[in-house]
Nucleic acid binder design. Sequence first.
DNA 1: TGACTTGTGTATCTTTTGATACCGTCTGAC
DNA 2: GTCAGACGGTATCAAAAGATACACAAGTCA
Lengths: 220, 220
Amino acid sequence: MLYSIFNSNLIMLTAPDLFQKLRSFPEPELQKEILKHGKILKANKGDVLIKEGQHLDFLPIVIKGQIRVYQEKEDREILLYYVGPEQTCMMSLSSAYFDYKSAANGMAIEPTEILVLPAYLIAEWQLKYPSWNKFVINTFKSRYDELLNTFGSVAFKPIQGRVKDYLMERMKTTNSKKIPVSHLSLANELGTTRVVISRILKQFEKEKLLKLYRGYIQMI
Amino acid sequence: MLYSIFNSNLIMLTAPDLFQKLRSFPEPELQKEILKHGKILKANKGDVLIKEGQHLDFLPIVIKGQIRVYQEKEDREILLYYVGPEQTCMMSLSSAYFDYKSAANGMAIEPTEILVLPAYLIAEWQLKYPSWNKFVINTFKSRYDELLNTFGSVAFKPIQGRVKDYLMERMKTTNSKKIPVSHLSLANELGTTRVVISRILKQFEKEKLLKLYRGYIQMI
DNA sequence: TGACTTGTGTATCTTTTGATACCGTCTGAC
DNA sequence: GTCAGACGGTATCAAAAGATACACAAGTCA
């Protein structure tokens, strides 16, 4: 839980190798500032870092691991995007410029290391450091594109096609035909229910597109 | 049509009262630059200004009127957002920073006046003029929020609820209980078909929420 | 006036998606 | 080993949404 993000579990920045992992910020001045103001948070798998409605006053930049950002409504949820290394999330970025409550949840899906920066610095640095500005603009732009893409799918594509897309995507990014995912979590990625997913996957199995196993899917 | 945006129908900027309508840019220097590089485009109702897949090298800022930005897929379409006075659109803004093709269409829904600026200036000005930077960040942020909102509705709300929301919204923004909209265009706003909309509206009429007329809906 | 276009109402049928329920299996904790 | 919990398969039923087709009314334009 991150309600106490600035109190618990934080490690002072000492690691000199931080900027080997964070290549987006080459300016020495900026690096100095980051070291001065930033802290490292280590999160475990399943830790909820950001909750819908929560007010944010920090910017998390992922160093290692993955954060899953999703919306929730009653017992359904739907994936917005993942935040991977060297990336940050829209919610926090927005909150730096405006008084803003998060519109989504963020949860670590694996052991994750996060660089935590106070939000008020974001706007300041943006005017001072070109690479920081680029990072900000880049984030806005790519998150927007992602969302637009997902939006298009949800609005126009029947679930069946979205399941196929999801599997193809996973296969491509992990470069493996074995996709470790349960029917339930797949349902949560796509904003539907488990039964629907089981049904569709079974159909795909009959069509010899894949084979189903407990806990994973083997693509053919 | 805007394929020839820099050739046709453009008026040199002479109007000194431009910045009475465009209050977001108070810096005299910036105003000078805008006058120097910008042109005014007058669009008629129904003019398509931006097409999906089109490469954009200009930034349109609406001075008067409205542009409707929407996605299309086969015979369906769905509204993303409107661009009103003093606003611009994400598609063009993105294109200024990256090599980018528009992911949506933009059409004037009423006679519209647009300030057209060459895209390469956007990044330049962003570093020079605080008000311009604010404008850029503001646009990114508010367009993202809007999209996220719409996305949430589409993902979780049955169409019936979305129709109701849409009507309420229109009633609020125009401050009138008479909403001039055909069933077909309503279907296009919400990404569904005319028959579905007619059916739902009829249901609402039976529930005495509204009255249906040719070309408009009277809320009760 | 007559031909078209646009807007609306409605019936019928199909497909898609969702809800519920029940059962068997696998796995890890104890 | 047992027990709880996660996982997956499946059947049944209901609701939501879409496709198609036809009818008719109102406006437009020549």
